[in-house]
Design a protein around this nucleic acid. Structure first.
Length: 809
DNA sequence: TTATTGCCTATTTTT
DNA sequence: TAGGCAATAA
């Protein structure tokens, strides 16, 4: 196996001369090698800021331009809709190709498209709806109530996690290993949930993947068709794939013979960065990268290590930090840019002071001509944003917080969508229940219970069981169902926009929110929904994701794609596979829009485009870059997060997270921590993050004196703090070429007296019964003071300091 | 049936 | 501290 490192990148000599295409201009040797890889499976290890997306799109364009594949022969998978869109935009800019007909999208988007085309074989109704996480949870809650499952013992959230996890591992209820009574119960609920979904014609996210995986697995003609068709498969963010996604890729690109996977004729290119794997907590398996190399008999591995984003002080910090991880494929970023500014480190006395300092620093940066949208504040957990927001708000600095509710997740939008979904699929009980009594129309819990009983008895959906309920409840319910049915009839033959306007008018939603004095925003959002639908119809040609491919598109000629017709296209001879076309080949605009809404939850904040400081979690920052980055809350227990500190893998993931945070910065990087912090309404005293110790001293500049950590002799606490700005501290600012240094408000001594117990997190203590342990967290003062201590032998415990006898070691 | 109070919990998140 | 959710009173 040849390893194309930085020095012998040309060993991956393209079979097509580089000069032949302007596409290949300005690629570095590694990038060029990756773009022009010969057919075969390959792994591209793409470091942060190494031009990964460019390589990926150029590869696709090059393959098509050189006639090695037609647009229909490409399968490109990304993790987010944003990435897919970006890829299509860039591709369009490179080649006059109809990207809409191409199979470029997220795993879920592509699976949806596949299932829409083969709904019958997949045993789904043609109108199947997609449950998002919220819908799934409420479906599970409903089911558990119906079957009287003890929700103390089996919290709905946990059950949801169990089901989603099983599906991600490709396990149906009968495949799940049962090792306890609780397991048995959970599997039983899983089974019931599946039956409920099937009855209602809905699929959750995991089901989209699993169902299409199984269809490929069990249906030879279908599998063989797609295997022949997708000659080039490219997967982005491979380190984030889960077991099922990996199995899905295998299914599309080879066979398993005698339990052993044998790669097929297609070329699979996996692009990823194990150092940026930060989603293990939700099922991502970095191990897929190593498995891929082994199982796909990878002949070519290329490392993209040239970084085009950051100065070397920043990169050196990132490299040094991630070097402390043991489980790595191995990679080192380098840059041709100079050292740049040092990484600035600041210790504040309180989270409030930390935010204050940051605001001042930002003002200075702004005066130096940095745009606010080029400044980002990163934090480990969302709760940390509050103080920062307050400080920014008080200083009248515009800011934008990422995270929180997205457009299609808002309650009013979900209500409106529920009406629309019910028009499309009357059996969707989740949607039915969401709106039977919203706006309130006198249908309470009792009526709904009656209806559910009737539905269960008759084996009907709630919609169909209404006639079986008598009395006043029945009358109300009938009125509701009649309203829906009338709406459905009225929507025939009118545009999507008109359908939505009709529903908004007749559902009473708008009226309801008008009566609410805080409903103005919600009405605005509902109006925005009309706009969203409108632009969906016009821009997206409704339903790139949702529409089953017209048969013709499967065999577009190169000429019709705007490509050079003289180039040989190798896969033209594939017989098209007709979609299950019973109800026509395309979905109605409404159905397509609903799919779009479920698969793409939309932006989380509308006021984009404004020049505002960007606030987000480190996770949310992945894939983004900024001129200036502040990493805040660099404290033990926060970053690394306390819940991750106990096990080795958890800590390594925290370190990767830190690595992601550092590599977001182009020019300037700040890190800060605080001596005290309000968390959950209590003051905590955290030690500064261990990650500081893993950074190269030479790349850092401490704006406040570097605290020596906590010397046992200073057990009386507070030793360093009040004086932390002491002699000569923090004032040695070299004014770099970046602008003037600023140091606005010096740290203020803590307002509150230091706690008398003198413990600090990170300290080693001794307990008579539990032995030696490490202080993880502290809270409260006086008699209420408690310490959370990790005892290697007894686990993590909270101890009241007024009771427990602890001695420092 | 609806409004209110009180309790509980509290990483990271895309599809 | 604050938000979400469920039991409780009107």
């Amino acid at each position: 196996m040849s390893l194309f490192g930085s020095h012998d990148a040309s060993a991956g000599a393209p079979s097509f001369p580089a000069a032949a295409s302007p596409l290949l201009a300005n690629l570095n040797p590694e990038q060029l090698a990756a773009v022009t890889l010969p057919a075969g499976n390959a792994l591209i290890l793409a470091g942060a800021g190494s031009g990964k997306t460019r390589v990926l799109t150029t590869r696709i364009a090059w393959l098509m331009q050189t006639g090695q594949v037609s647009p229909g022969g490409i399968l490109a998978v990304t993790f987010t809709n944003k990435a897919a869109k970006e890829m299509m935009t860039r591709l369009t800019a490179m080649l006059p190709v109809n990207v809409r007909g191409m199979w470029i999208g997220t795993f879920h988007g592509l699976c949806n498209r596949f299932l829409r085309a083969h709904w019958k074989l997949a045993n789904l109704p043609s109108t199947f709806q997609i449950l998002d996480t919220q819908d799934q949870l409420s479906a599970i809650k409903r089911l558990m109530k119906q079957f009287n499952v003890d929700d103390e013992r089996f919290p709905a959230k946990q059950t949801q996690w169990f089901i989603a996890g099983a599906k991600e591992d490709g396990l149906r209820p009968r495949d799940v290993e049962v090792r306890s009574e609780d397991d048995r119960k959970k599997v039983e609920i899983y089974q019931l949930y599946e039956e409920q979904c099937q009855r209602e014609g809905v699929v959750d996210f995991g089901e989209l993947m699993l169902r299409s995986y199984e269809l490929l697995r069990d249906n030879d003609p279908v599998r063989e068709h797609y295997q022949r068709r997708f000659r080039h498969i490219l997967i982005d963010e491979f380190q984030d794939t889960n077991r099922l996604q990996y199995a899905w890729i295998k299914m599309l690109s080879g066979q398993t013979v005698d339990g052993r996977f044998v790669p097929g004729d297609s070329s699979v290119i996996a692009v990823g960065d194990d150092d940026q794997s930060i989603y293990a907590f939700r099922g991502a398996r970095v191990g897929n990268m190593a498995d891929f190399v082994r199982e796909f008999d990878v002949q070519h591995q290329i490392k993209l290590e040239q970084n085009y984003r950051s100065f070397s002080n920043i990169l050196d910090s990132a490299n040094a930090l991630i070097g402390h991880n043991t489980k790595r494929l191995g990679k080192n970023l380098r840059t041709e840019q100079g050292p740049g500014e040092p990484v600035r480190v600041y210790e504040a006395t309180s989270d409030f002071a930390e935010a204050q300092w940051m605001v001042e620093e930002m003002r200075q940066l702004a005066r130096d001509g940095i745009e606010r949208k080029e400044m980002a504040v990163l934090y480990r957990s969302n709760a940390q944003s509050r103080v920062i927001e307050t400080a920014l708000f008080n200083a009248a600095v515009p800011y934008r917080v990422y995270g929180g509710l997205r457009f299609f997740e808002r309650a009013e939008i979900k209500h409106a969508l529920a009406y629309l979904r019910l028009l499309e699929n009357k059996d969707d009980d989740t949607s039915f229940l969401r709106i039977v009594n919203f706006p309130p129309r006198g249908i309470g819990a009792r009526s709904i219970e009656l209806l559910q009983d009737a539905a269960r008895a008759a084996g009907h959906s709630l919609h169909d069981a209404v006639s079986a309920v008598g009395g006043k409840a029945g009358a109300n319910l009938s009125a509701f169902v009649a309203k829906i049915d009338v709406l459905r009839e009225q929507t025939v033959g009118i545009s999507l926009r008109e359908i939505i306007e009709l529903v908004l008018d007749h559902s009473g939603l708008v009226e309801h929110y008008k009566a609410d004095r805080e409903g103005a925003d919600r009405i605005e959002n509902l109006e925005e929904l009309v706009n969203a639908a409108e632009s969906f119809v016009t821009q997206e040609g409704f339903g790139r994701d949702a529409v089953a491919l017209p048969v013709d598109e499967l065999r577009q000629s190169p000429a019709s794609q705007g490509l050079d017709p003289n180039r040989p296209v190798l896969d033209e001879a594939i017989e098209p596979l007709a979609p299950d076309a019973e109800t026509g080949e395309t979905l109605s605009p409404l159905a397509a829009f609903l799919t779009h809404a479920a698969l793409e939850s939309g932006d989380n904040q509308a006021q984009a485009g404004q020049d505002a400081v960007q606030l987000m979690t480190v996770h949310a920052a992945k894939g983004l870059e900024f001129d200036c980055v502040f990493i805040t809350g660099m404290e033990e227990g926060l970053f690394p997060h306390e819940n991750s500190m106990s096990d080795f893998d958890g800590l390594e993931e925290e370190r990767r997270l830190m690595y992601v945070a550092i590599t977001r910065a182009r020019q300037r990087l700040y890190m800060s921590h605080s001596q005290t912090r309000m968390l959950h309404g209590q003051t905590r005293y955290n030690l500064k993050s261990r990650f500081y110790d893993e950074l190269p001293e030479g790349a850092l500049k401490w704006l406040t004196p570097k605290n020596q950590g906590f010397a046992p002799s200073a057990f009386g606490y507070g030793g360093g703090y009040a004086t932390s700005r002491g002699a000569g501290g923090g004032s040695s600012y070299g004014g770099g070429g970046f602008g003037k240094e600023s140091f606005a408000s010096p740290p203020v001594p803590p307002q509150k007296a230091a706690p008398s117990h003198g413990l600090r997190s990170g300290m080693q203590v001794f307990h008579n019964k539990f032995g030696e342990g490490t202080v993880v967290a502290l809270e409260g003062t006086g008699d209420d003071a408690r310490a959370q201590i990790n005892f290697p032998r007894h686990g993590v415990k909270w101890l009241a300091l007024s009771v427990a006898k602890l001695t420092p070691v």
